[in-house]
Computed example of a mutant assay.
Amino acid sequence: MKRHFLIGIGLAVATAGSLHAQEPVVSVNGDVLTQQQFDQALDQRTQGRSGQLPDAQKRQFLQQLVDLQLLAQMAEGRGIADDPAVQAELANTRRAVLARGLIERISEEQVSDEEIQAAYDEQYAEQSGGEEFKARHILVEEESTAESLIAELDDGADFAALAQEHSTGPTGERGGDLGWFNPEQMVPAFSEAVAALEPGRYSSEPVETQFGWHVIQLEDVRKAEPPKLEEVRGELEQRIAQRKIQQMVQERRESAEIDYQADWANE
């Protein structure tokens, strides 16, 4: 684990300096650590909260980076950088950093309002005009148990109280309350049984699914309304960016010269 961390920090120090002409923070035996390198390493350590740290903690972290640089220099002196395993790890890390950098830049590119609207229509058009249900259920293992519960309901028992006492499902403790849901969220047999009920009524026969036997009570029905576009804009922008990245990789794959040389890598 320590070697992974040293290599990760060492790579950040080595690559950032070649890409950014920044003011130096410290020089260790002639190797310069720039402000850009320091900020990147500190952001990585603090998960982006470096701006909240007092100068004393920043100085403490700087001393850790100096120690890392000294260790890296000693490793270089011993020829560790020529070790095939170390070279492989450095190459893999460099590849991952470059790929992540490209993905971040593509994700930050402006997504047009037309693209967002099209993605919104594609994802949420089916929700418009449909129905959502609010229901409770009691889940038990045996059909006979479900039949007994229906008989108790026929005699005036409270559905929520029976669910709390008998249901084996995760909603039992809250009286079997499933909240609002659309039919696609439930298995077909359950959704069909709910749709056949009138609000306020419960199933007259047990409903079987792969989870067991259900007694279902429909409480209410409403027209399904999709979320407002602004509520899901961020999610849509991310999805569009991911799609662009996938398309870009696929196009590059189709034009690239890829030669699988290991025997096991070929079908």
Rank of each mutant, 00 (worst) to 15 (best):
A157F: 06
R233L: 05
R45Y: 14
Q57C: 02
A151T: 08
Q242S: 14
E235I: 09
A75L: 14
V32A: 13
M248K: 13
E192H: 00
E165R: 11
G200C: 05
Q35E: 14
E184L: 06
P227N: 07
V86D: 15
L178G: 05
R59C: 05
G129A: 04
A16S: 13
S27Y: 01
A193H: 09
T145K: 10
V86S: 04
I258K: 02
E184K: 07
I138V: 07
Q164L: 04
A196K: 13
M1L: 12
A85I: 14
L197C: 06
G179I: 03
I150E: 02
E231C: 01
G51E: 08
L197A: 09
E165M: 10
A151S: 13
R239C: 00
E254N: 11
E205H: 06
E225R: 10
Q127K: 04
T93H: 06
A265D: 15
E132A: 13
Y260E: 15
G212R: 10
Q44H: 14
T15N: 07
E230I: 09
R239G: 01
E114A: 15
E76K: 12
V111P: 01
N182S: 10
G129W: 03
K228D: 15
A72V: 07
D121Q: 13
L19I: 09
A91Y: 10
T34V: 06
L149Y: 08
I240P: 10
Q246G: 09
L70R: 14
E254Q: 14
E132N: 11
D177W: 06
Q69K: 09
E132D: 13
I150P: 03
R239Q: 13
E126D: 11
S203Q: 03
Y260Q: 10
V249H: 06
E254Y: 03
Y124Q: 03
A265F: 00
E152D: 13
D155M: 01
R252K: 11
V13L: 15
E126V: 05
P24C: 08
E230P: 08
P199N: 05
L68T: 15
S27Q: 11
E115C: 01
Q47R: 15
M74R: 08
E126G: 00
A119Y: 10
F38H: 06
P183N: 09
K134A: 10
F159P: 04
T209F: 01
R78K: 11
R100L: 01
S112E: 09
E257W: 08
E235F: 05
